[in-house]
Design a binder for these strands. Structure first.
Lengths: 158, 158
DNA sequence: CGTTGATGGTTACATTTTCAACCATTATGG
DNA sequence: CCATAATGGTTGAAAATGTAACCATCAACG
């Protein structure tokens, strides 16, 4: 059969399934879009990041990052400060309220993920991890045919 | 670290990476959206399907399926015929031109996928397959917490 | 310096997707 | 039968995304 067993299909299906529970949390419960949530996570992990650094880390297209930052700023969760050396760049960082929000949401997200994976044994988790690691190495090792990052790539959740 | 190693993130990243090459084909070369391509695949595999059956197989939200069918019909690749028993349902099937189109596109899609996976050994492919199979079983076995299908779920490519 | 080209980031516009409401038809239950 | 609810499918408006163009600044080089 053409469809089943086809790799991009399988990955997209699983990505969607695993994202469902967490999306409900950041989206419905906290009114965040996916880019906003991802930017929030990355800002919480580091002290401050420019939009370009966020693009590389998130990873997402710069327009999404730009809009996510604007939305989070409007919400009072992020501030942006200009750079002294290079006046093109702006350093974004979480406000205290932003950090509090992240501290509230993060455990909900982790709990939802863990609940979803609860039925898996340690052995099974290793099997999953090994499979994904193979593909990750593939794209790490073979950047050919792949846009030089900052691409309009999309990745869900946290 | 919170972000890396997080399952939905990893799956989405890989889904996006593996979808990139095939998307360029159905989209740029053949002017199809993702829902249209997926509907095309499923209609090519079976003789005829109703929109509801497509929703279950694709799987995608019914509005996407509806619009994909309309687009393919406008393109002359699909026809829809009413049901004798139940006048709400319509059976969609590919026209000869639709089948020809699929026959043209399919090998391109398969070649792109195979080219992408070419660096992987048979052993590595088994590892990938085993990992994905674990997760697939998880969602097969545990339909709890998951909308009763026909959900607005999204899956890429073929 | 002045021109040219790259880079960081935003904005505008077209396309897609989501969400809810909707129509038509069929099932259900007094 | 009649009312109510459920189902198959479509549509419209709002939200999100993709794409390209754009502005400002900086870097390179004559």
């Amino acid at each position: 059969m053409f469809l089943k067993g086809y790799l991009p299909y399988r990955l997209n299906y699983l990505a969607e399934m695993t994202s469902e529970a967490t999306r409900a949390i950041y989206r419905r419960r906290h009114g965040l879009t996916r880019p906003e949530w991802r930017v929030l996570v990355n800002l919480a992990e580091t002290d401050s990041l420019t939009a370009t650094e966020l693009c590389a880390r998130v990873p997402m297209h710069k327009t999404k990052v730009s809009r996510a930052l604007s939305a989070l700023e409007a919400r009072g969760w992020v501030t942006r400060a200009g750079d002294a050396q290079d006046r093109r760049v702006a350093h974004a960082r979480l406000t205290p309220r932003g950090r509090q929000a992240f501290a509230r949401i993060r455990p909900e997200m982790e709990a939802a993920t863990e609940a979803m994976l609860a039925p898996l044994s340690a052995e099974e988790r290793r099997t999953v991890d090994a499979g994904l690691a193979v593909l990750e190495r593939l794209f790490e090792a073979q950047p050919t045919g792949r846009r030089q990052r900052q691409s309009e790539f999309e990745a869900d959740d946290a």
